[in-house]
Design a protein around this nucleic acid. Structure first.
Length: 568
RNA sequence: CGGAGUAUAGCGCAGCCUGGUAGCGCAUCUGCUUUGGGAGCAGAGGGUCAGAGGUUCGAAUCCUCUUACUCCGACCA
């Protein structure tokens, strides 16, 4: 391919609206262009990378015995109504009507469609297990698309779905997928980590996320320095040592004018922050407490983890209560406490045996001290509601918990029968009885991976693609316009292609500096430079993208030298 | 959806406060020179100043509304 004819427009300046490095470099190096918020053109270079990633994903999934198929992007509302998700999914589901006034949506995920497909033909346990997958465009009308390919509204995803006769079989496949994912991300040359995760709106119970470690990651993951334990912050647990105080005094109000924040109260009354019960009122939607307010409590030096709270409550959505809602609970904002409040109380389990605590007294400028949770808050429910913090101890090995930022590029779930029950994906089991399949689902954000790789593989000059997914193996750079260099370049160009090495030939009438800079920016693993200077001695120059130095190689050796470097 | 901001040539920006000829750098085109890490000189093209309304003799500039985009929060591959 000749660069002069190739649609790979590079930019000298960084576009102002690109925040993260992958977005900037992909725009500057001519891989992507923005069409609309969260919606991108993949230019030829970008598409090549995407396809190369797909190939690796495909190879590894085919290895597991999963079968590739392709489901539609446009999906009828009926299927989503059947699974109840037409109501539950919210605004991320882009809905519209066709010319017959039938409601439909753009698929953000394909559980409904795949269940509908499988249930039509599934008769017997003998047909199970079955795993299918597809690589396809998804559309999620994200509230806030950002960071280019990292969080688009339209994006390419590999999604796989497995169907099983029993839980053991599902566990098996889950592990298969876990292993396949590990191979995939390793082959992509990524530094990544699998972490325990919350299952979110997809539902089900067991779940791991695969995170590419990067400063720009949107997720916080907690992991142990001493063992394999790693979890998304939404899910992470830890041991926290708290020096227990015993208290025999009875609860007593204490005046705390203008002291709402935990720190103020602690300072005023000379308490440790961990002696304070931090109380937050939430308005709940969905589940047992639908439409009500509940009170959530953690120690003053902890943070409430709202995802954990939502799961404990079985809620679909929670929001901090507003002033009026706080009043309806019989309290005053800033002085909320679990004693005598007119609302269900949920406390972090660390508080279950706490003594000598202080909390809001539900009246202005007043707190209540000498609280023993067991004695004084008898109606409370307990659950893990707190955010794990760095430096706490691992529940498995006692090691220290550390945190990293990560880009979620894969997520695997055991779904159980959440969808198969709703969609009635049934079969006859060994006993001849009708049973419902148990399911797993497994996603990889392919287009997000393009960005994630760039986040991990770049330097000040541009992208440094791993050779497995680089759009071309070689940038062939011709310096000058002389007949000699052209002829020599053409020869190298032809021979590379014959050897199965893909090459983008920069034969433009540009100055050397421009060509070098563009080559670094685009980031192919190898640069071969043909100039009059070297040709006089019968050689060209070879430069690996990651190396500073160029080496001289004779014209006759350049192909094998390149082959060896790429290990093709 | 809440909060904050931006919108002027392909990209990066100035001009706006204090209303009066639409500008700079890079990119593009032509010519000459140059040619091993984003060249120099000379010339040229390119704009409904996001859109609509208003104020005014006169609006990129002041006012109102609309739209798009970005950033910060809650959701996700």
């Amino acid at each position: 391919m000749l660069l002069s004819k190739y649609l790979a427009p590079t930019l000298r300046d960084t576009p102002a609206d690109a925040e993260v490095i992958s977005h900037q470099l992909l725009l500057r190096a001519g891989y992507i262009r923005r069409v609309s918020s969260g919606i991108y053109d993949l230019l030829p270079l970008g598409l090549k990378v995407l396809r190369n990633i797909e190939t690796i994903v495909r190879e590894e999934l085919d290895q597991t015995g999963a079968q590739e198929l392709l489901m539609p992007m446009v999906q009828p509302a009926e299927l989503w109504q059947e699974s109840q998700r037409w109501q539950k999914y919210g605004k991320e589901l882009l809905r519209f009507k066709d010319r017959h006034n039938h409601e439909a949506c753009l698929g953000p995920t394909h559980e409904e469609v795949v269940c509908d497909l499988v249930r039509r033909d599934l008769r017997s346990y003998r047909q199970l297990p079955l795993t299918v997958y597809q690589i396809q465009s998804k559309f999620r009308d994200e509230v806030r698309p950002r960071f280019g390919l990292m969080r688009g509204r339209e994006f390419t995803m590999k999604d796989a779905y497995s169907f099983h006769a029993d839980e053991d079989c599902l566990s098996n496949e889950y592990q298969n997928m876990f292993d396949a994912y590990t191979r995939i991300f390793s082959r992509l040359g990524l530094s990544f980590r699998a972490v325990e995760a919350d299952t979110g709106s997809i539902g089900g119970d067991k779940s791991h996320e695969f995170h590419v470690l990067a400063q720009s990651g949107e997720d916080l993951i907690m992991h142990c320095s001493g063992c394999d334990y790693a979890a998304n912050q939404e899910k992470a647990v830890s041991k926290k040592e708290i020096s227990s105080t015993s208290n025999s005094q009875l609860p007593q109000d204490v005046s705390t004018p203008a002291s709402k924040a935990v720190g103020d109260v602690a300072a005023l009354l000379d308490y440790a922050e961990s002696q304070i019960i931090k109380s937050m009122a939430y308005h709940v939607q969905g589940g047992e407490y639908d439409g009500q307010c509940v009170l959530a409590c953690v120690r003053g030096d902890d943070q409430i983890q709202e995802i954990k709270l939502m799961r404990a409550l079985g809620a679909d959505e929670i929001q901090l209560a507003d002033e009026a809602q706080v009043q309806s609970m019989g309290s005053v904002s800033g002085y909320i406490g679990p004693v005598g409040i007119n609302a269900p109380v949920w406390m972090d389990q660390q508080l279950s045996t706490a003594q000598g605590m202080i909390c809001g007294a539900n009246q202005a400028d007043t707190h209540r001290q000498h609280i023993n949770v067991e004695r004084d808050i008898t109606e409370a429910n307990f659950a893990d509601l707190r955010n794990v913090q760095e430096g706490e101890s691992c529940v498995h090995c006692g090691g220290e918990i550390e945190s990293s930022r990560g880009i979620e590029v894969g997520h695997i779930f055991t779904l159980g029968d959440v969808y198969s029950q709703a969609m009635q994906v049934g079969f006859l089991n060994k006993q001849g009885r009708r049973a419902i399949t148990t399911m797993g689902c497994y996603g990889i954000g392919i287009s997000r991976l393009v960005a994630a790789v760039v986040e991990q593989c770049h330097d000040d000059d541009g992208i440094c693609w791993p050779k497995q997914i680089a759009p071309f193996h070689v940038s062939l750079i011709t310096l000058g316009q002389s007949e000699t260099v052209r002829t020599a370049s053409k020869e190298v160009y032809d021979q590379l292609q014959e050897a199965g090495i893909s090459v983008l030939w920069d034969e433009r009438k540009e100055r050397p500096g421009v060509k070098f800079c563009d080559a670094e920016l685009m980031g192919f693993p190898v640069q071969i430079i043909v100039g009059d200077r070297g040709l006089k001695e019968g050689h060209v120059e070879f430069k690996a993208r990651r190396d500073e130095e160029k080496t001289s190689v004779t014209l006759s050796n350049i192909i094998t030298h390149t082959q060896q470097h790429l290990a093709l």
